[in-house]
């Protein structure tokens, strides 16, 4: 059963990818990106990674789509026509894909008890987090407590991204408009 679910999801992912590559209207491409993220979220659910699936669905399919549409509203939704000769691009894509497939073949199976990911600190998290942290969701224990320092860094990254946006296009307060208008009137004089 799981094989069919996986095969179905992966086929849909491949179909969506081909549609994204062939699509020339950027608004439709943005919608397909959202669909791709939602399918990825379903794949993560099949892999029992519900927290990641949750993030992928809300960030990938939700917010990213809105932000890309907002960007299209500013930049325009037209893509320049692509030149016919795409042989170098095809070679790069095929070689990269072959290397990736070769790399995936060296990865351990999902849930392999001898894999490095399940032999190092994994045991401590699974066996001790219930008594040490007392939180049923181990993902939350790891993210918020064992790896709290990393999560602080992630929040700082998000904060910095917000600061960058404020510096680049303003915080929507209209201050940039006033400043620009002020400069314009100064130039007139």
């Amino acid at each position: 059963m799981e094989f069919f679910v996986n095969a179905f999801l992966l086929a849909l992912l491949a179909a969506t990818t081909i549609a994204i590559v062939r699509m020339r209207r950027l608004i439709a491409t943005t919608m397909l990106f959202g669909i791709f993220s939602l399918l990825m979220a379903a794949v993560f659910v099949v892999l029992d990674a519900v927290d990641v699936a949750f993030t992928e669905a809300s960030v990938g399919a939700g917010i990213s789509t809105i932000l890309m549409l907002a960007t299209l509203a500013i930049c325009g939704a037209k893509q320049e026509s692509v030149p016919r000769k795409q042989l170098p691009a095809i070679i790069v894509v095929v070689v990269t894909g072959a290397v990736l497939l070769w790399g995936v073949s060296g990865l351990p199976d999902v849930g392999d008890p001898t894999a490095p990911a399940t032999t190092h600190v994994y045991k401590r998290y699974v066996e001790e987090s219930g008594t040490e942290i007392g939180v049923p969701n181990i993902v939350t224990s790891v993210l918020a407590s064992y790896r709290g320092y990393d999560t602080l860094g992630e929040v700082a990254v998000i904060f910095t991204a917000g600061l960058g946006i404020i510096c680049l296009i303003g915080a929507g307060t209209g201050q940039q408009r006033r400043r620009r208008n002020g400069n314009d009137s100064g130039d007139d004089v």
Binding site: A70, I74, A171, G174
Partner: peptide
């Protein structure tokens, strides 16, 4: 807050330009 600031930034930019 960052999500809201992002939206305000984009929407404000569109309004001003």
């Amino acid at each position: 807050a960052v999500m809201i600031v992002l939206f305000y930034g984009f929407a404000g930019y569109l309004r001003d330009h």
